[in-house]
Every structure is written in structure tokens, then in C-alpha cells.
């Protein structure tokens, strides 16, 4: 059973009975799409972000750091990528996180697996992919994200680029905060509620605008319109999609509803996934923030390996998903 059926029913009643548009008309199809998708996506966001926030309250970065210190190549990279999903992270704390990891003996390559996975596999992206594309695509996204995070971390670890980290990082000694008291359940709930309000409050305009544009395209643009430009047979589609994705950072919420319509109009799935990953994983603001601890050469390597991985994933899925 489709749990969203009641939302569809409400959207249908408003569009066809209240407004009086015909289901066959372009305007009717667009309005119905909009009225169904907006509440559905916002509802999904609120529920899942709440759950994610509760899970995250068990994984403060200080604990993650303890778990990863003195870990080894390979196993450490896998653990770091997985922990990257559950450890709360915002680009504003990327620098203290990086220093803290390095200071406690987390190998550089393992630290990078964390830094790649954490923003790329973010809950907003996963929820939207799940809601608009289904669980298979969402799972594929998570697995590919983990794969890129693990391999790029291993490559950076193998290259031995420790000297491309700013020297002062190695001189910082962290103090001991002592054991901060474990959060109580009421505190976790308060935190989760606040987190939902913060994230949904921030992304809802993007969701509405994204779905709005998507709805218009859904209603008015012919279905195979994009096949010749962004279909699986255009070899340049993936790299171009990645380039377009870089400056769209943090707008995953507005971008995904849009790409869901792009796929409907003929954009290939691998291109869509690569685009999504570029939007959330290749962020210029984060690169600028990381400049405080990384020399430009290392930022270039980090971005380069990531971008190559994302493009490769795009081509791979364009080849196998039809």
C-alpha cells in the first residue's frame, strides 16, 4: 500500500474538483504534481531528520575520533566512511574536526574518507532520493558514495601527502574535556525537534521552488525532450552535469525535485546520480574553509579524486541502468 495515497487523494480533489482542472490538461497535471509532491517531501524530511538527529546524538565527533584514532588503512577507511554518515557534521566545524582527527593519530587517508562521506551521504539527499526515485536509487546513491569515500581516502593515504597539511596543525595539542555527561532522552528529543525545525526551516523554500519548476516541466515539456542532450548516449553529459553541480552547493533540497523531473524527460540515471553527488560532495565553500588546514595542492588532489570518482560512477550507472 502506498502510504502517500491520502496525499494524492487530497491533491486530486483540490486540483480536479475545487479548482476544476481536467486531469488531461497541462495545468491540471502540473498543479496536481505540485500539490502532491510538496507535502510529501516536507513530511518525509521532517520524519527522517528527526530520526537521524536522535541517532546522531549518540555519535558526538569526540567519540568518533576516539573510535578512529590509530586505525589502519582499509579497515579504517571503511569505518570512517560509515561513521561519516552518522556523525553530525557541518562545514563550519570541518576545521576543528580535521585537526582533532589528525591530532589523535587518525591517519590522513582515513580522515579524508570521513570528510568525503560526511557531506556527500547526507540525510536530506537520501530522503529526497528515496521519496522521489524509490529505495533502489537511494541505496545505490549511498553505496556509491561510500565507495568513493573509501577509495579516495585510500588513494590519499597511499600517496603519503602528510606534508601537504599546514604545519601548524601538527603542533596543536588538544586538551581533555573530560567525560561530558551523556544526553538524556528528553534532551535528545529537544535537540531532534530543534534540528528538524532548523533544517526544514532552511530548505523548504528550495523544496517548494524546486518542485514548482519541476511541476511546470512535468506538465508542459514533452517526455523525451532531454534524451538527445542528457540521455545515456551523450558522453559529455556526465562531466557537464558534475561541473554544473559544483556551484549549487547546499541546494540539494531544491535540486533533487528538479532532477526527478529531468529523469522523467530523458536524463540518464547515472548522470542524475553524478550530478547529485557533485551538488553535495564537491563544495567550494568547504574547500575554502579547509584551506585553513590544507595546502592548495592537497585541496586540489582531494577535489580531483572526488570529481573523477563521481564522473566514473555516472558513466558506470549510465552503462548498467537502463
Amino acid at each position: 500500500m502506498d502510504v502517500f495515497a491520502p496525499l494524492q487523494w487530497i491533491a486530486d480533489r483540490i486540483t480536479y474538483d475545487l479548482v476544476g482542472l481536467s486531469p488531461e490538461s497541462k495545468a491540471g497535471s502540473a498543479l496536481d504534481f505540485f500539490l502532491y509532491d510538496v507535502p510529501k517531501v516536507l513530511l518525509l524530511l521532517a520524519v527522517v531528520i528527526f530520526a537521524v538527529a536522535i541517532i546522531r546524538s549518540f555519535f558526538p565527533p569526540e567519540r568518533t575520533r576516539k573510535m578512529l584514532s590509530h586505525s589502519r588503512l582499509y579497515a579504517g577507511n571503511v569505518a570512517a566512511a560509515l561513521l561519516g554518515i552518522v556523525t553530525p557534521f557541518c562545514s563550519c566545524s570541518a576545521v576543528p574536526l580535521f585537526i582533532g582527527f589528525v591530532e589523535s593519530g587518525v591517519p590522513l587517508g582515513v580522515t579524508f574518507s570521513f570528510l568525503v562521506a560526511s557531506p556527500m551521504i547526507n540525510e536530506v539527499a537520501i530522503i529526497l532520493l528515496f521519496g522521489l526515485f524509490g529505495w533502489k536509487i537511494a541505496a545505490l546513491y549511498v553505496v556509491s558514495g561510500l565507495f568513493i569515500a573509501i577509495t579516495s581516502g585510500i588513494i590519499i593515504g597511499k600517496l603519503g601527502l602528510e606534508s601537504w597539511v599546514e604545519e601548524y596543525v601538527y603542533q596543536i595539542r588538544m586538551g581533555d574535556a573530560g567525560e561530558l555527561p551523556e544526553q538524556t532522552w528528553p534532551e535528545r528529543f529537544t535537540y531532534a525537534r530543534g534540528y528538524v525545525a532548523e533544517i526544514v526551516g532552511k530548505v523548504w523554500p528550495y523544496v517548494v521552488v524546486g518542485i514548482g519548476i519541476g511541476a511546470v516541466m512535468h506538465g508542459y515539456i514533452p517526455d523525451d525532450f532531454l534524451v538527445q542532450y542528457a540521455g545515456p548516449n551523450n558522453p559529455f553529459a556526465v562531466p557537464i552535469a558534475v561541473l554544473i553541480g559544483v556551484p549549487l552547493y547546499s541546494n540539494a533540497a531544491g535540486v533533487i525535485p528538479l532532477v526527478s523531473v529531468l529523469t522523467e524527460k530523458g536524463m540518464a540515471m547515472g548522470t542524475v546520480l553524478a550530478f547529485m553527488m557533485a551538488v553535495v560532495g564537491l563544495s567550494l565553500p568547504e574547500a575554502i574553509i579547509l584551506r585553513k588546514v590544507l595546502k592548495p595542492k592537497l585541496i586540489a588532489v582531494y577535489f580531483g579524486i572526488n570529481a573523477i570518482g563521481i564522473v566514473a560512477i555516472g558513466y558506470l550507472f549510465n552503462a548498467v541502468l537502463h
Binding site: 558526538p60 565527533p61 569526540e62 566545524s93 576543528p96 574536526l97 585537526i99 596543536i172 574535556a177
Partner: peptide, 20 residues
């Protein structure tokens, strides 16, 4: 970081970390 925390904001009262 000398206070031993990795995520901001942090609240320190009389040199003891209360929350981060």
C-alpha cells in the same frame, strides 16, 4: 581545541567544558 572539543559552539564555565 585546547579545551578538548571538536565541534562548535562550545560552552565553558570557569574553565570546565559544559557542552559542545
Amino acid at each position: 581545541m585546547a579545551f578538548g572539543i571538536m565541534s562548535t559552539p562550545g560552552l565553558v564555565v570557569d574553565d570546565s567544558v559544559k557542552m559542545s
